[in-house]
C-alpha cells in the first residue's frame, strides 16, 4: 500500500470516523447537561427571535469597539470565508465531494481559488505571528491555540505544494495533503476548533440573556 492509498483509504476513513464520533460526543454531552432557567420576569417576550438577532449581529463588532477590534474581525472573516471557498469551490475538491455524495456543484476558476488560498494562508500566518507577538495573545495562548492554527494551515500548505507540483512527487504531496486533512479532522473535535458547533449557540445564549433584561446585545 502506497502512502496515497493509505491516505485516500484508511487514513481518511479513520479520521472521518473519529471526527464524527468526537463531534457527536461533544455536542450530545453538552446538550445533556442540566440547564439553569431563570425565574424572574423577562423584559422581552421575543427571546428566540432576538437571540437569533444576536447570533447575526456578532458577525460585526459594535461601533464602539470598531477601532480596537475591527482588524481581527476582518482577519477572521477573510480566512474563514477563504477556507470555505477553497474547500467547497475548488474543482478538484468538488470532485472529491462528488465522489462522496454523488452530486457536485459549480466551481470557481483555479486562478481565483489559488488567489483566495494564498490570501487565506497569508492571513493565517499573520494571525500566527500576531499570536506570538501580541502581548495579550501570547499571554492567553495555549498549546491548543497554536496547534489548532498550525493544523488548520497544513492543508493549505500541502494543498499548494500538491497543486503546484512542488516539493515531493505529486502523489506524495497529494497523500500529505489528504493526511493533513485527516489530521485536521482528528484534531477538530478535541480542540478549540469545536467552536464551529458552540460559537453560534453561545451567541444565542448571551443574546437571550441580555435581551431578557431589555438590552440589545
Amino acid at each position: 500500500m502506497t502512502l496515497l492509498d493509505f491516505a485516500r483509504g484508511p487514513a481518511l476513513q479513520g479520521a472521518a470516523f473519529i471526527f464524527v464520533v468526537g463531534m457527536v460526543w461533544r455536542a450530545l454531552g453538552l446538550l445533556l447537561l442540566h440547564r439553569n432557567t431563570p425565574l424572574s420576569r423577562n423584559r422581552d417576550n421575543h427571546l428566540a427571535r432576538h437571540g437569533f438577532r444576536t447570533v447575526l449581529s456578532r458577525f460585526i463588532p459594535a461601533p464602539v469597539f470598531e477601532r480596537r477590534v475591527s482588524f481581527q474581525y476582518v482577519a477572521g472573516w477573510i480566512w474563514h470565508l477563504g477556507f470555505f471557498v477553497v474547500l467547497l469551490f475548488f474543482k478538484i475538491h468538488v470532485m472529491f465531494f462528488q465522489g462522496l455524495l454523488g452530486f457536485g456543484w459549480p466551481t470557481l476558476p483555479n486562478g481565483v481559488v489559488v488567489a483566495v488560498a494564498g490570501i487565506t494562508l497569508g492571513v493565517l500566518l499573520w494571525l500566527l505571528g500576531r499570536r506570538i507577538v501580541n502581548p495579550v495573545l501570547r499571554y492567553i495562548s495555549t498549546f491548543n491555540d497554536y496547534s489548532s492554527l498550525v493544523v488548520t494551515m497544513l492543508p493549505f500548505i500541502t494543498g499548494f505544494l500538491a497543486f503546484a507540483h512542488y516539493g515531493f512527487a505529486y502523489e506524495t504531496m497529494l497523500a500529505l495533503h489528504i493526511l493533513s486533512i485527516s489530521l485536521l479532522l482528528v484534531w477538530f473535535p478535541f480542540s478549540k476548533l469545536i467552536h464551529v458547533i458552540t460559537l453560534l449557540p453561545s451567541r444565542y445564549i448571551l443574546g437571550v440573556k441580555f435581551w431578557r433584561r431589555g438590552v440589545q446585545a
Binding site: 461533544r26 453538552l30 446538550l31 445533556l32 447537561l33 442540566h34 440547564r35 439553569n36 463588532p61 469597539f65 480596537r68 477590534v69 481581527q72 474581525y73 477572521g76 501580541n134 495579550v136 495573545l137 492567553i140 495562548s141 495555549t142 491548543n144 491555540d145 478549540k192 469545536i194 467552536h195 458552540t198 460559537l199 449557540p201 453561545s202 445564549i205 448571551l206
Partner: peptide, 22 residues
C-alpha cells in the same frame, strides 16, 4: 454553577483576545 449554557460558552472561546480591548 456550570450549566449547559456556561459549558457551551466555555467551549466556544477561541482565545482571540478581543475581550481585552473592552
Amino acid at each position: 454553577g456550570i450549566d449547559a449554557n456556561f459549558a457551551t460558552q466555555l467551549d466556544a472561546c477561541v482565545h482571540c483576545g478581543a475581550c481585552a480591548q473592552a
